[in-house]
Simulated assay, not measured.
Amino acid sequence: MAELFESYASDFAQLQKSIESRLAIDFSSVSSETRRSALRHADAEAEEASELVSQMEIEVQAFPSSVRERYTNELRALKSSLEKLQRDIRAKQRPASGLGASGLPLEEYHDQDPETGHEDAQRQRLLKGTDILERGTQRLAESTRLALDTEDVGANILQDLRRQREQIEHSRDTLHGADAHIDRSTRTLQHMIRRAQQQKLITTGIIVVLVLLILLILYSKLF
């Protein structure tokens, strides 16, 4: 998600730089066609930048709360930059002294064919829409690629977890086997201890009997 947001931010920075360079033109020293072309391109790029901001807003909503505030502040700054660019474009589009509403000299403004101007505007809108669609397709392809990469990472993690589970199960079975061997060994040792105690008692009894017999024999010999 952060990678896609940074990609949008990078595209926005490029558009901002392009718009600022177009607005920096000294329109008083260029032809009316150059002025119209620069403002049309600047307006189209501003709309594309607005689309990027909308996409970034969607991405920010999906961020975890731990980083959302930082990206929200960055997005707020980008919105402010976009609003300033849009104000600058509108200011450049206002008719100046000796210019008509379209930015043409008054004589050209009156001679301009309204139907031709409408066709040009429609053509520009179509070109702008096609360009926005192509960029949206590219972003969609990039999002799809990121989703596929994430899916591959998730599949690898699942495989690792499966292998670790098998290892844990094998270790558990080994521990169960070791417990069984320990139980058998404990029972064997307890049996051996009881046998040793029994033999010790028997040996003690035999010794006592032998001592008594020896004393009895000595008593009978002496008395």
Rank of each mutant, 00 (worst) to 15 (best):
T137E: 14
G100N: 02
R165Q: 14
R195C: 01
R139F: 13
L213C: 15
H191S: 14
I168C: 04
S18M: 08
L161W: 02
L146Q: 07
H110G: 02
E45Q: 03
G129P: 02
Q93S: 08
R165T: 10
Q159C: 02
A155P: 00
R68F: 10
E74F: 06
R187W: 07
I89T: 14
D131S: 15
I168Y: 04
R163K: 15
H191I: 08
L216W: 14
I19N: 10
A141Q: 11
S66F: 04
Q122S: 00
E59I: 11
Q164P: 02
I202V: 10
D152N: 09
K221A: 09
D173S: 10
F5M: 08
T186D: 11
S185C: 03
I202A: 09
D149K: 11
D43M: 08
R139Q: 11
A141W: 03
R76V: 00
S102I: 00
G136A: 08
L78I: 00
D131H: 15
A141F: 04
N73Y: 13
K84H: 07
S7D: 09
S143Y: 04
S143N: 06
P95H: 07
D179C: 02
F27T: 15
K221R: 09
D26V: 03
S50E: 12
S143F: 05
D88F: 01
D11M: 06
L210F: 02
Q122A: 03
A96R: 07
D152G: 07
D183T: 15
D43Y: 05
D88P: 02
Q14S: 15
S10I: 05
D173R: 04
I217Y: 15
A141M: 10
F27S: 14
P95G: 12
I182L: 09
L23M: 13
R76G: 00
D11P: 05
E59K: 13
S7A: 08
R70E: 06
S220E: 11
I206N: 03
L75Y: 01
L218M: 12
L126R: 11
E47W: 03
K17Y: 11
A2K: 15
E166V: 01
L104G: 13
Q124V: 02
L146W: 02
T137Q: 14
A147L: 08
T188F: 12
R40H: 00
T34S: 12
F5I: 10
G177N: 14
R40F: 00
I214N: 14
G103D: 12
H176Q: 08
R187G: 09
G205H: 08
T72S: 11
F63I: 10
A178L: 15
L75A: 01
L218G: 11
I214H: 14
R22L: 15
A178W: 01
T72L: 07
Y109D: 13
I157V: 04
A101L: 06
E3F: 03
V53M: 03
A178G: 06
L78K: 02
E6Y: 10
L4D: 04
F63N: 11
S143M: 07
Q55P: 06
I58L: 07
L78N: 00
I202Q: 07
Q198A: 10
K79N: 05
A121K: 04
H118D: 13
A46V: 13
Q138G: 07
I25M: 12
L104I: 02
Y219L: 14
A101Q: 05
T130L: 15
